[in-house]
C-alpha cells in the first residue's frame, strides 16, 4: 500500500476520524505530563531562578514554529508536483497553528527577556528571525484569504511558500550578520537550552513531544474542516447549476 493513498480525501477523512481521538488524547496527556513535571518538579536555575520554567513552553513553541513552516513547504511541494488537494489543504490548515506557535515563542521570549536582559524586546538575532517568520505566516494566510478560487489560491500560496522559504533562510543569515555588526559578542543569546542539565532535559523532551502531538491533532482537525468546506462549496455550486 502506498502512502499516497492517504492523499485521497475520502481515505483521509476515514483515517483521520479514527486517529484523531488517539492523537488528541495522547497530546493532552504528554502536554500535561511535561508541563506539570517541568513546572512543579524541577529546581530553579541558579542564574535564571524560576524563569527557567519558561523553556518548557518557549523551546517547544519555537521548534514547532519553524517545523510548521517546513511542513507547509513540504506540503506545498507535494501539491505543486503531485496535485494532491489534501496536501495543500493541510498546509493551509497548519498556517494558523504555526502563527500561534510563533506568537507564543515571541511572547514568552519577550517576557523572559524582561527580567533577564532588562528589556521587553531586544533585536536579538533569534527573536528577530521569529518576528520575520511571523510576517511570512501573515502574508501566506492573507494570500489564502484574498483569492476566491480555491485551486488558484492553492497554486499561488504554494509558490509563495516556496519563494518565501528561500527568502526566510536568507533573512536568517542576514539577521545574524546584521546583529553582529551592532552588538559584538552575544551576551543576549538565548542559548540556554543548548546546555541544559538532565533535570531540565527530560520534562523538556516530554513537552516537545506534547507540542508536536498538539500540532498534529490541530492540523488534522483543521484539515478535516477545510476538506468539508471544499465539499460544501462543490455541492452548493452543483445546486446552483441544477
Amino acid at each position: 500500500m502506498s502512502i499516497w493513498e492517504y492523499a485521497n480525501p475520502k481515505k483521509f477523512m476515514q483515517t483521520s476520524a479514527w486517529a484523531l481521538p488517539w492523537v488528541t488524547g495522547l497530546a493532552v496527556l504528554t502536554l500535561i505530563t511535561g508541563l506539570v513535571w517541568g513546572f512543579f518538579f524541577t529546581p530553579d536555575d541558579f542564574r535564571m531562578g524560576s524563569t527557567v520554567k519558561i523553556i518548557y513552553i518557549h523551546v517547544p513553541a519555537a521548534i514547532m514554529a519553524t517545523g510548521t513552516w517546513f511542513m507547509m513547504l513540504a506540503a506545498s511541494l507535494i501539491w505543486l508536483i503531485r496535485r494532491h488537494h489534501v496536501s495543500v489543504l493541510a498546509a493551509k490548515a497548519a498556517a494558523p497553528v504555526g502563527t500561534t506557535m510563533t506568537l507564543i515563542g515571541l511572547f514568552t521570549g519577550a517576557i523572559w527577556g524582561q527580567p533577564m536582559w532588562g528589556t521587553w524586546w531586544a533585536w536579538d538575532p533569534r527573536l528577530t528571525a521569529f518576528l520575520i517568520l511571523f510576517l511570512f505566516y501573515l502574508g501566506y494566510m492573507a494570500l489564502w484569504e484574498a483569492i476566491e478560487d480555491p485551486d488558484t489560491a492553492a497554486d499561488l500560496t504554494s509558490v509563495l511558500c516556496l519563494v518565501g522559504s528561500v527568502f526566510a533562510i536568507i533573512s536568517r543569515y542576514a539577521v545574524l550578520f546584521w546583529n553582529q555588526g551592532l552588538h559584538q559578542g552575544s551576551s543576549l543569546s538565548m542559548d540556554a537550552e543548548e546546555h541544559v542539565s538532565d533535570v531540565y532535559a527530560w520534562p523538556l523532551w516530554v513537552a516537545i513531544v506534547g507540542f508536536g502531538l498538539l500540532f498534529v491533532s490541530l492540523v488534522l482537525i483543521r484539515t478535516r474542516t477545510e476538506i468539508r468546506s471544499r465539499r460544501l462549496r462543490a455541492l452548493e455550486a452543483r445546486e446552483r447549476m441544477a
Partner: peptide, 8 residues
C-alpha cells in the same frame, strides 16, 4: 457521498 468529487 464521498469527498473525492469535491476535487474533481
Amino acid at each position: 457521498g464521498g469527498f473525492d468529487e469535491a476535487f474533481a
